[in-house]
Design a protein around this nucleic acid. Sequence first.
DNA 1: TAGATTGTTAATCGATTAACAATC
DNA 2: TAGATTGTTAATCGATTAACAATC
Lengths: 206, 206
Amino acid sequence: MKTVKISEAVVRRLPIYLRFLNELSKKNVYTVSSQDLGVKLDLNPAQIRKDLAYFGEFGKKGIGYDVDYLIEKIRQILKIDKVIPVALVGAGNLGRALCNYNAYLKDNMKIVAVFDELESKVGESINNLKVKPMRELKTTIQELNVRIGIITVPATEAQNVANQFVEGGVEAILNFAPIIIKVPNEIRVHHADFTAELQSLAYYLD
Amino acid sequence: MKTVKISEAVVRRLPIYLRFLNELSKKNVYTVSSQDLGVKLDLNPAQIRKDLAYFGEFGKKGIGYDVDYLIEKIRQILKIDKVIPVALVGAGNLGRALCNYNAYLKDNMKIVAVFDELESKVGESINNLKVKPMRELKTTIQELNVRIGIITVPATEAQNVANQFVEGGVEAILNFAPIIIKVPNEIRVHHADFTAELQSLAYYLD
DNA sequence: TAGATTGTTAATCGATTAACAATC
DNA sequence: TAGATTGTTAATCGATTAACAATC
């Protein structure tokens, strides 16, 4: 039932479940228990059952979960059962890496437009997409129905790009720039911050 | 006092504080309150004070925190007050992006070696580093005292690379491959998983 | 039927926030 | 002195885990 608010922690685990289930499906494994999943994903089985139970009764007592059925369900929950058009700003090294990294294509996230501020980058081809100038951002993402924006520009530009995404009607943003960007409440922002990730790792060194 | 166990959530916020403090310092701001920090970083001021108080009394009542002093302290806490040698495996797009992205250099994380399995990649130069073959991994990281390993290879190779890192004596791993890797308990692993990040964003679309 | 495993409640654990005395 | 802000305790809130009846 969607009446209970689903916590962010739960939502973040769903893609992890999905990925592993996809692997199982490829190996023609038809059924999986929360126990199995827990061992493989380093998670408590009770937590996995509880996470899934927020969205429905997907398992069978005494049996476990049907792999393909659960895949279908999680994809529906995550709303990636249809293609989601994504745009990316910043055709630098990281931007190019993300464009070429089409692993998410099979999960219906499709980068349909790439933009860069630099005239020298405009017109370049990345993975069959021509880099467009920033001035075309708003009209292009509206035309292409872009729903998620990815930011891979330097920190100094990130807020500006975010503003343009919001103006263009994007509903969510994945920000790789090392800065906290501010957007209206109804826009969802995730920060992919590997400098922070790396630094927090250092804490655990002896 | 280090007797209390510091939670992961706290450690993950420290780099965020640090980054913003660095910005303030560059702007010649000498003092900052938990209030100020909270507004800028979208965090509760009490939480910030509590986070910092785990490690000492860094502030002055009625005044706030001395920016440069707090920077120094957080860098000590994160153990990035001296250079930490890092190695990276996987000279693909993402790997190259991370190598060139030397923003973490100023925070003492230094990529000192890059490896790739493909003979065709070996010998290439990335940001003044020659890509080395995998067979040299163990000896090289031991010679260079590498303490953190970054994995940017395909999922199928990730566990294998992780094992080699562990054998070579690395203490922590940042894994970009979309798979949960298993390592001995004493090794710290963080997963930088932007496919998962992107997919969980989709959940929040209307 | 016996064994396995779910869905769910209750218990536990941990993290965040509010409040305020101490003090600059 | 008055105002501001810390460090810290206590209260609240939320997330994880254990336990078990239901049932395949």
